[in-house]
Write a protein that binds this DNA or RNA. Structure first.
Length: 483
DNA sequence: ACTCCTTTGAAGTAG
DNA sequence: CTACTTCAAAGGAGT
């Protein structure tokens, strides 16, 4: 599990999930994260559209200008905040022209406290996330910084000029243990696709059990549509944005983030934005009510009776594997067993950190560029992923960890192997062997210097104990090989 | 209709 | 333990 050293070093410690090579070795990229956000889009676009060299608009001088003085470990967080603001300024005129979504109603403040800081205090990043938007939400919603924050922290859901949300913000800022303890960092559910595992990435109230909402949300009525916003469930942090109506018609880059009561902002179908998976707390609560061994055998139904999104009906995908599905009885003979297995739902893997990140950011990237091809989008997302700060990555790692935990609780006997079609070694689809040199044959690599990362030198490797050399070498041949 | 592409990370298997 | 494979999401593109 990623851990943030709350003290002097921002090293994530022994976590083997965070790749620390970008901490210093990728300083340039990290520094240019702000600009890379606009550049990578242009880069990929240009490479895909054969417009080479157009990425020069992010000129080298500006690159040098972006390069902050060598940062120290102690000043890292400060730098990070500075970079946030700086990026916000820059992106105001860049590709990241935040669409005007004056009504984007909420601010969702991810609580990054908890596991990241040994003392349990709010991490500096979290403070940053809290403080800045709190001031920002009073300013223009088109504020570059806010746009950036919303880009950077799509979970930050800013409602401008809404007293209720201000009150909500106050509440969020209040030292309520629920806010502090809840480590929930909600990731959103793409309306496109019912996410298989959306316990932590769901704030659709659609399936939330209406409970007793906080007083400040009691009369939460959408000012635009007049549609009452569904209240927060009792055990859901008010951080969760439940702002269906307002954003529906507003071209917000994170419109997909919002529960769809109106029209989806992006060319995405109204998949229903179902989040049958309760939130972490909800699930944990439900877990307390339904211990793992009491999880209903019909996994297609959650404890709430709502079809579980992680389960794909057998018609979609089938695999022959044994699991602990309660509906299976060993006494049945093979035919019936086969039928049982046919009916057996396909439990998908929990999403890892990057997948969660992709899910959250994809729509935004798609909205910011004309690219629709997922391969290209994923390239951008991959680069952005590496450009993320540790705290931001840690957020997703933690989220993924919770997803895995939740998945384990819900499906104790499930194994990733269950989803192996034909089993290990029998490839369902032959993946092209990626030799480093082979990968470099990609035109994007040549046309797109931004798609590459500086080669990792041995010095850099030694500088970071947690650097997963092997992982990086195998996972990022493209970056490891200097294009 | 199906597969590939493309990304990272988790988890599984084989040696 | 290491290396490798598969799958998770996504949707356009190709077969």
């Amino acid at each position: 599990m990623p851990q943030l050293n709350g003290g002097g070093g921002d090293d994530l410690g022994a976590n083997d999930e965070l790749i620390s090579f970008k901490d210093e070795g990728e300083q340039e990229e990290k520094i240019s994260e702000n600009s890379s956000a606009e550049r990578d889009l242009a880069d990929v676009k240009s490479s895909l559209v054969n417009e080479s060299e157009t990425n020069q608009n992010s000129s080298s001088d500006s690159e040098a200008e972006r390069r902050p003085p060598p940062r120290t470990e102690t000043s890292f967080r400060e730098k990070a905040r500075e970079s946030l603001e700086e990026a916000a300024k820059r992106q105001d005129g860049g590709l990241f022209k935040g669409p005007p979504y004056p009504g984007y109603p909420f601010i969702m403040i991810p609580d990054l406290s908890g596991p990241y800081l040994p003392n349990g205090s709010l991490s500096p990043t979290a403070r940053t996330c809290v403080n800045v938007p709190l001031d920002l939400h009073l300013t223009s919603c088109c504020s570059p910084l806010m746009q950036y924050l919303q880009m950077k922290w799509p979970l930050l859901d800013v409602q401008t000029g809404n007293l209720q949300s201000r009150q909500a913000l106050k509440d969020a800022r209040s030292p309520s243990p629920a806010h502090i303890v809840s480590n929930k960092v909600p990731v959103v559910q793409h309306p496109h696709h019912v996410h298989p595992l959306t316990p932590l990435i769901t704030y659709s109230n659609e399936h939330f059990t209406p409970g007793n909402p906080p007083p400040h949300l009691q009369a939460d009525i959408d000012p635009k549509t007049g549609i009452p916003r569904p209240p927060h469930p009792p055990d859901i942090s008010p951080y969760y944005p439940l702002s269906p109506g307002t954003v529906g018609q507003i071209p917000h880059p994170l419109g997909w983030l919002v529960p769809q009561q109106g029209q989806p902002v992006y060319p995405i179908t109204t998949g229903g934005f179902r989040h049958p998976y309760p939130t972490a707390l909800t699930v944990n609560a439900s877990m307390s009510r339904f211990p793992p061994h009491m999880v209903p055998p019909h996994h297609s139904l959650h404890t709430t009776g709502i079809p579980h999104p992680a389960i794909v009906t057998p018609t979609v995908k089938q695999e022959s594997s044994q699991s602990d599905m309660g509906s299976l009885h060993s006494s049945k003979h093979q035919d019936s067993k086969k039928e049982e297995e046919k009916k057996k739902p396909h439990i998908k893997k929990p999403l890892n950190a990057f997948m969660l990140y992709m899910k959250e950011m994809r729509a935004k990237v798609v909205a910011e560029c004309t690219l629709k091809e997922s391969a290209a989008i994923n390239q951008i997302l991959g680069r952005r992923w590496h450009a993320l700060s540790r705290e931001e990555q840690a957020k997703y790692y933690e989220l993924a960890r919770k997803e895995r935990q939740l998945h384990m609780q819900l499906y104790p006997g499930w194994s990733a192997r269950d989803n192996y079609v034909g089993g290990y070694g029998k490839k369902k689809k032959r993946k092209r062997d990626k030799q480093p040199g082979e990968t470099n044959e990609h035109s994007e690599c040549y046309l797109n210097p931004c798609l590459t990362l500086p080669p990792i030198t041995g010095e850099k490797k030694s500088a970071f104990a947690t650097y997963k050399v092997k992982a990086a070498a195998s996972a990022h041949p493209l970056q490891m090989e200097a294009c």
